[in-house]
């Protein structure tokens, strides 16, 4: 590992995206549009106040998962990864470079989504906006880390798209959006309690209602951070210099 090579990789990924304005547009705007749609659906009802914070967790997570997993898969398929691994690039440089680059994009995306949800859609945030940012960014980084991991198991573009339902849908279903987790069957409740997205949803809900103290939120951020680190470590282990 070498900070210069990590930064060079992050810079290169961002440069690639810069040459693709449509992707930038989609990345930055789509989550906000979807949040706007949800708010519109539940217009005249109190539902958006309940699930709005969860939406802030959901869309950036999904979008970052998709772009990261496809981005790294492209690298495997184009032969550039093979070239890089025959060069003095550490596996950690590669993974962290991607995490940094997409992490930065996640910050921008989240900022827009939060601003849109609060100012345009009227989502009430009782707690600190700063804390809301921290959670939302951790959540987008989680999407990035899991996307990196998923791409390690995919050989084709078709497969990597199929991994989205595998990695993402169970977390949405068990995260407490459809039914609060304490009302789920026992087994599912336990599973849901261990999934990282559940904690992101809890934390964002807590920040917006202002019901819990900062310790509660930080504990959830810590839990998400453990998942991010775990996914990055496993992801870099699955990235082999020598392949069959």
């Amino acid at each position: 590992m070498n900070p210069m090579r990590t930064l060079a990789t992050a810079g290169r990924v961002l440069m690639q995206i810069r040459h693709d304005p449509r992707t930038i547009g989609l990345l930055l705007i789509v989550p906000s549009l979807l949040i706007g749609l949800v708010a519109w659906i539940f217009d005249e009802t109190p539902v958006f106040a309940d699930i709005g914070p969860a939406m802030l967790a959901l869309f950036p997570f999904i979008v970052m998962f998709l772009v990261t997993s496809i981005g790294t898969l492209r690298e495997r398929r184009s032969g550039t990864l093979e070239r890089l691994l025959s060069m003095p690039l550490g596996r950690g440089d590669f993974i962290l470079g991607y995490t940094l680059a997409f992490g930065l994009l996640a910050v921008a995306q989240t900022a827009i989504a939060v601003a849109y949800a609060t100012w345009v859609c009227g989502l009430e945030i009782e707690g600190s906006i700063g804390m809301l940012f921290v959670v939302a960014i951790a959540d987008a980084l989680l999407g990035t880390a899991l996307g990196l991991l998923a791409s390690a198991f995919a050989r084709t573009e078709f497969q990597v798209v199929q991994f989205m339902p595998v990695f993402v849908f169970p977390q949405i279903l068990l995260g407490g959006i459809f039914l609060p987790r304490d009302q789920l069957p026992d087994v599912l409740e336990v599973v849901g309690d261990w999934l990282p997205l559940s904690h992101a949803i809890d934390a964002l809900t807590a920040v917006s209602t202002g019901d819990e103290d900062a310790g509660y939120v930080w504990l959830r951020i810590l839990f998400i951070a453990c998942w991010i680190i775990g996914a990055i470590v496993i992801g870099s282990l699955t990235l082999r210099r020598r392949t069959p």
């Binding site: 210069m4 810079g11 070239r83």
Partner: peptide, 18 residues
């Protein structure tokens, strides 16, 4: 094995840094 969405120089600059 180069990046399609970078210029020639940007490709080489990255590989040189690595």
């Amino acid at each position: 094995s180069i990046y399609d969405d970078l210029t020639v120089r940007q490709n080489l600059r990255y590989f040189a840094r690595v």
